[in-house]
């Protein structure tokens, strides 16, 4: 690993400590049978790695590791405002809210970018179809009507409040 921040300092000799290891019991392994324990991790990041995939698009990587994984997904590289937020998020570790909360924010910004992108390509997203309401129409008409009624009530309420404000002016 070229990145010298990541070191493997493990497995020193502690035999001078009285009683060291006398009760070690390899059978006491709560990971069995999920794991065939070999303790290979003790050697650090030293296995023979798969061929490295060439990086053709921007890939953000966790700062808790030194490199890109040998293989990675290339779908939807970061772009636009959401991409800027995601790049910022990846400056923080997975251990921090400062990583995850901006990512959730970026996801929401990305939805708006998606709608704008649809408009730019001359399509108007068919929300009724995208939300799968066709299925709800087929199998749960009362549920769909209830949903629509709630939306209608909220819209009517909002319109009412807005027009009332106007009256006050």
């Amino acid at each position: 690993m070229e990145n010298t921040d990541f070191i493997n300092k493990r497995g020193a000799d502690y035999k001078h400590i009285k009683g060291w290891g006398i009760d070690a019991d390899p059978k006491n392994d709560p990971t069995y049978p999920m794991k065939r324990r070999t303790n290979e991790e003790h050697k650090g990041y030293t296995w023979e790695r798969p061929t490295q995939q060439a990086q053709t698009v921007e890939i953000l990587h966790s700062i808790e590791r030194p490199n890109l994984t040998a293989v990675f997904g290339t779908s939807v590289p970061p772009s636009g405002l959401s991409g800027m937020i995601r790049r910022m998020a990846f400056k923080k570790s997975e251990n921090e809210y400062g990583h995850w909360l901006p990512l959730i924010l970026a996801d929401r910004v990305n939805v708006v970018e998606g709608v704008i992108d649809d408009f730019m390509h001359g399509t108007f997203p068919n929300i009724f179809v995208e939300k799968g309401y066709v299925a709800q129409w087929r199998h749960d008409k009362p549920g769909l009507f209830a949903k629509l009624a709630v939306v209608a009530a909220i819209t009517a309420g909002a319109v009412f409040l807005m027009t009332r404000k106007n009256d006050d002016d």
Binding site: K43, E48, R49, I59, S62, R65, T69, F72, E94
Partner: peptide, 29 residues
């Protein structure tokens, strides 16, 4: 998605591969 070569895959933790998810260390790919 698992590489079969990393310390975790070799111990049959194929859901926890170290060579397939760059974005997070706490989740496999």
């Amino acid at each position: 998605i698992a590489c079969g070569k990393c310390a975790f895959c070799r111990q049959e933790l194929y859901g926890n591969c170290h060579e397939s998810n760059s974005q997070a260390t706490a989740v496999g790919a």
